[in-house]
Design a protein around this nucleic acid. Structure first.
Lengths: 224, 224
DNA sequence: TTCAATAAATGACCAACAGTCATAAAATGA
DNA sequence: TCATTTTATGACTGTTGGTCATTTATTGAA
């Protein structure tokens, strides 16, 4: 009785703690969306969250930590959408293509996660990212996203819509990396007037991605 | 006479100034290679260059500015190598593939530029990057690299090794973006033990990139 | 209701570091 | 030789991420 009562209390506290953490992430997303990560200060995030700066550090170890939490949120969201594709009643090759579109839509409707993902990858190779807990979590999400792609490829190999001469895992890495690269370049083109690299080219993000998916699709699809 | 003498002096000064600038970039490359951009301080770079910190600011506006100069160096180097491919006596489709390999080799032998390029792109979408002079220069190099790819594609379309149903510029963007994406993912896999996303997969960077080039190659090559 | 104990919140404070500037040293050329 | 201009310097400043002693709120037993 006392025990369950106590348990309940702890559980409520836990919930409150989680809620506050989410609220801080909300605030950080707003501030960072507006000013970019580097130009956002902890004081600004604290003010937006209606908390003292010191309080933020009761919930997060560092500024980077908060940005990684945003990353985490984004990758969970993306994975949910990827998971849905697997449940669709379509051929494997169509699933793979659909995943490309899902990723594109995701980036277009959540640009902050685009930057956050890039930041994470950049940090992985530059900084000493000691936050092993959240980093492991993020990597786990990466593995999960990859798993969906690989599964779609396997489905396609079984239903005969995708060639079987490559290892599906290898193909998965390739498709994933290539999609990200194309969408990154195309996204930059669309969003930065100053990105002159493509200024005289007027393909829309969608048409670029569609063509890409066509090309890689015809590179992997079973022709016979 | 006096004039030409004066001209000569100015020219020598210019040369010395340029040389010192290069020396600072050298020093910065060393320090940043060792500690990463964020963890490197201007004092460290100054010490490595055997100069006072204030002196660095006679040659560069900011720490970021130095990193962009490193970027600049890297993209010039890469463009040189890309330009060589165009002069080779091979079919268009082979040129395109060769460019993928060139990019891969470049990243493998100059990892610092890999990070620098990523930093630049990230900054373009996050910061307010006011250094318009060097930014324009960098974008120009991007356009140049792209031009090589597009030219190779056009050559391939003319010699019949590449399908003509896509706009070569569109294809160029796609090939370029996809290559970067695949190499980025594969490079991360190879260099970060902690990158668990692919830990149970044992394809080498080369074999991944080779497969990718195969796939996209068969997606764009003229089959008949 | 009261109150001691525990937990949560706070903002003044600190250290690190990018960037500045008054001063000094070196180069120039008359 | 020396006045003038150019180049170099490091002490100094402002900003900001992160800390911690202190304050405030919550809890639960008496």
């Amino acid at each position: 009785m006392t025990n369950s009562h106590k348990m309940k209390k702890i559980s409520r506290k836990e919930r409150e703690r989680l809620a506050r953490k989410e609220a801080i992430i909300d605030a950080a997303e707003e501030v960072i969306t507006l000013k970019g990560f580097k130009n956002s200060t902890m004081d600004e995030i604290a003010e937006k969250a209606e908390l003292g700066k010191g309080t933020l550090y009761l919930y997060f170890n560092s500024k980077t930590s908060i940005y990684l939490a945003i990353c985490d949120r984004g990758s969970k969201l993306l994975n949910q959408k990827m998971a849905q594709v697997i449940t669709m009643d379509i051929k494997g090759i169509e699933m793979v293509k659909e995943m490309g579109h899902v990723y594109l839509d995701f980036i277009k409707s959540n640009p902050i996660y685009f930057n956050a993902f890039n930041f994470f990858e950049n940090s992985l190779s530059e900084d000493r990212l000691v936050e092993s807990a959240i980093v492991d979590d993020l990597q786990e999400h990466g593995v999960e996203a990859m798993t969906y792609v690989v599964r779609a490829l396997q489905i396609g190999m079984q239903d005969g819509t995708i060639r079987t001469n490559y290892d599906p895992k290898e193909l998965g890495i390739i498709f994933w990396g290539a999609s990200r690269g194309v969408i990154q370049v195309a996204y930059m083109k669309e969003n930065r007037k100053s990105l002159k690299i493509l200024s005289d080219i007027n393909f829309s993000l969608e048409s670029l991605v569609n063509s890409f998916i066509d090309i890689i699709g015809s590179g992997i699809k079973n022709d016979q």
